[in-house]
Simulated assay, not measured.
Amino acid sequence: MSTLYEPLPKEFVSKTAFFDFKTPLTQALDEIAKFGAVIVTKDKAYFGVADDRVVSRKGSDKSMKFSTAVAVGRFARKLPMLDKDMSVGKAIGYFHEFSTKAMPFGDGKTVTGLVRRDAILRSILSLHLLSRAKVSDMTSMPLLAIDADATVPQAINVMSQNGVKKLAVMDKGKVYGIIVHKDIFANYARSSDRMPELTSDPISFNKVSVRDAARTDVFSIDYGSPSDNAIRQILERNVSSRLVTSNGKPVGMVSARDVFEFAAATVEKEKHTVIITGMDANGVEEYEQDMEDEVNRFVEKMDRFGTNGVSYAAINVNKVKNKGYEMRARLGFQRSGVVFATATGYGLDSTLTALLDSLFKQVKGKKEVRISGRKGADRYYAGE
């Protein structure tokens, strides 16, 4: 993988289980645990994605009671479907926006599999997207913590009040472990339907200490470490977050969600600038967004083609008597100057298509290309 603008590789798509939205949650729990997420359908059409985090978040009240009769469809989120034309950069944005462990993949109508969070995290590493960043750039602070001698219901209440799903556990001023909402659900959730195999004593649950429910095999990462180290640890240890320390003291956490947020911001900064002028003057401003979208797709195509990286695309539209429209374009590259092209036509769509085709042919090198260098000197490159 060479750029953010390449389509998602086929190997990013993995198999999962499918369930009708009326299927009882209890029948889907094993598959959700196995795959991390499953596809939910309604009348055989895509309905949503249910993952283990949503199940633990919505599947019970603060007493960890849930009904075995509740349908899996209740936990499905209608996430956008990724497809074969989706770029890695755009997928990063989706994982940040929806904070999910997996996104559905298909042809726009039918889902064929899932793209998991881990696959996109690996692409962030392979693209060196965040290689210049430090863990400190992504750390969520301050660190939210609870005493080891508090009860699990108290921990759930603190999580609810602060909108988080995990807390550091402190014992006499030192980190004892981490307590995670998903673990609480997995270990203490009990049926409200009086099924013996799923029922635990509510009194004992209320008295369970955070010390007994916490993960104690906690690994930390230093505040000044390269961000890639945090991503590798999240992947290698199959966890969603790492404790961050500075001079041996806990200061915050860095999670997969933090990584996607920072990566999405980085992608946004690297987006190409598309400048379209002349639309207002010629009374066709309502088509400007459609034109900008088309030019952005073209620029992504150029990056996949292996150019030196497009830094901007500038297009001027002018209405010409007896000719319809005249368009002039300048395509700027990060390390090799600017390519020029012009096109005329009677319709906006056809003229833009001709303009972009001309640019592509020049970039591809089939014709002699006139390029204005960074220092203003004209350069000429012969075609193939």
Rank of each mutant, 00 (worst) to 15 (best):
T3H: 11
Y5A: 04
P7V: 02
P7N: 01
L8H: 00
E11N: 14
F12I: 10
V13H: 09
S14R: 15
F18E: 01
D30G: 13
G36F: 04
A37S: 06
I39C: 07
V40I: 07
K44C: 01
K44G: 01
A45C: 01
V49W: 02
D51W: 01
D51H: 00
V54A: 15
V55F: 00
S60Q: 12
M64N: 00
S67E: 07
S67W: 04
A69Q: 14
V70E: 11
V72I: 14
V72Y: 03
K78C: 08
M81L: 04
D83F: 05
G89H: 01
H96C: 03
E97P: 02
S99I: 09
S99C: 07
A102V: 05
M103I: 05
P104A: 00
G108R: 03
T110N: 12
V111W: 00
V111A: 06
L121Q: 09
L130K: 06
K134H: 07
S136R: 14
T139N: 09
L144T: 07
A145M: 15
A145C: 13
A150P: 07
V152D: 06
I156Y: 00
N157S: 15
M159W: 00
S160A: 06
V164Q: 00
A168Q: 05
M170G: 07
K174I: 09
V175L: 13
I179K: 05
K182Q: 05
A186N: 10
A186F: 08
R190M: 15
P196W: 01
P202V: 06
V208M: 11
V208I: 14
S209D: 07
R211M: 07
D212L: 08
T216K: 08
D217G: 13
D217L: 13
F219A: 06
D222C: 02
V239K: 03
S241T: 05
T245V: 15
T245S: 10
K249I: 12
G252I: 08
A256S: 15
R257P: 11
T266G: 01
E270W: 08
I275E: 09
T277F: 07
M279T: 15
N282Y: 13
V284K: 05
E285L: 14
Y287W: 08
E294M: 13
R297L: 13
K301E: 12
K301I: 10
G306Q: 10
G306I: 06
V310M: 00
A314L: 12
V320H: 02
K321E: 05
N322H: 13
G324E: 06
E326F: 12
R330S: 09
F333C: 06
G337V: 02
A341C: 09
A343L: 13
Y346W: 08
Y346D: 08
D349C: 02
D349L: 09
D349T: 12
S350P: 03
A354S: 11
D357G: 03
V363F: 02
G365W: 00
E368D: 06
V369R: 15
G373F: 03
R379L: 13
Y380W: 05
Y381V: 15
E384M: 13
